[in-house]
Design a protein around this nucleic acid. Structure first.
Lengths: 216, 216
DNA sequence: GTCTATAGCGGGATAGAC
DNA sequence: GTCTATCCCGCTATAGAC
């Protein structure tokens, strides 16, 4: 009566490209195996044997490269949050606040779609981190949140957006990006970029709706 | 270096009201203890001893009322999805499609906010269910999705909404409702009903934005 | 740096008294 | 229907050879 132990998911995801160059070949294989296992089964249901088998190594090899299973999770979530933040920071400032916000949402959403396997682990397995590691991830997350918050409040100050509750709207925008990892598949109807553009329009619609409420 | 084992969360949540009257007092106490533990630590990190201790019972008592730890999870997720679907079905049909959709979103969002602890388990721990139990939950989830899909397509057919990709818009609306359980707290700024009204406006804004994209 | 082997223990589930 | 006691498996992490 054990829970379903599904086979490893078809990792149509380029998470292997997320790892820092400072990791050697074996360490990167362990991270890639770990992200697949954690995404499919969750951290606590994944054994160190699962991870090392996925990497083609013996069970003991994990401890040559990482101090614990939790450290594997930490490096995965850190790389995921770092890469997501980098994607936001690559969006050029631009002049039109609405187009800037649109580009930010498109970048955030398409990153989560393209890296939905790593994103699932990065977003939903944080509870298994040690408090110290958790704090590091929260720090990265805050920086991503701040990017959206700044874009919204600066646009409002410039008169491009209506007055709105920036905290609530930012949370709603982040929800669109994060929650898609529960259902998105790369072999589905939308490419990451198409979904990003579509959701960017929805996000701008939400910003406008925040105004219509205020006016009512 | 184990992961954080946080104390049980302040269960500002009326999940005890979700259980079927067919369960006796001890079984309901186990479900309530289980939902708190699963929400705080996840299914796999929760021990049967955690659950029974939270219910004030000995470890063996669990197996008098449930056949396994997984069955406790199943009954929790079933009650959660059933209650959420009931909340949608209590929304009166109404005559104005926009107001009907608004009321549906408000009901869905406020339910997830009020029951955010049970909702977290219902939405994020489904991977630990047996395949047979998982199928039951997916059936309930499909019925909730269909309610939104029907409201959107009927409104479109009546000319109240612009032509839009109903599947994508429904997914975005559901994401707003589901993802809030990652951050919502009952002692925060918004009551469940206030958040429901606010998100209902955002959802209608998304429906309008879907049109503006089509026209461009 | 990789392996085989295993220590050590925590947890799901059960036995059997009351 | 609740308890105490415990079985026994499986998992994390380590020891030590190569």
């Amino acid at each position: 009566m054990s829970a379903q132990r599904s086979a490893l998911p078809d990792l149509a995801d380029d998470s292997p490209g997320l790892w820092d160059a400072g990791f050697g070949k074996a360490a990167r294989a362990l991270l890639t195996g770990g992200v697949r296992c954690f995404a499919a089964q969750g951290f606590h249901a994944t054994t160190t044997r699962d991870i090392t088998a996925a990497a083609g190594l013996s069970p003991a090899a994990l401890y040559v490269h990482f101090s614990s299973k939790e450290e594997v999770l930490f490096e995965i979530t850190r790389a995921g949050h770092k890469s997501s933040l980098d994607a936001l920071n690559r969006v050029p400032p631009g002049t039109d606040p609405a187009e800037h916000l649109r580009a930010l949402v498109a970048a955030f959403v398409s990153w989560h779609a393209r890296h939905h396997v790593a994103a699932r682990v990065s977003q939903y397995e944080l509870g298994a981190l040690t408090p110290a590691h958790y704090d590091v991830i929260v720090g990265l997350r805050r920086r991503s949140t701040a990017v959206f918050h700044d874009a919204l409040t600066h646009g409002t100050a410039a008169g491009a957006f209506p007055e709105a509750d920036a905290h609530r709207v930012v949370r709603a925008i982040l929800s669109l990006g994060v929650d898609l990892v529960r259902w998105y598949r790369l072999d589905g109807a939308d490419s990451p970029e198409e979904l990003g553009e579509y959701y960017a329009d929805l996000a701008l619609g939400m910003v406008s709706a925040a105004e219509s409420r205020r006016r009512r």
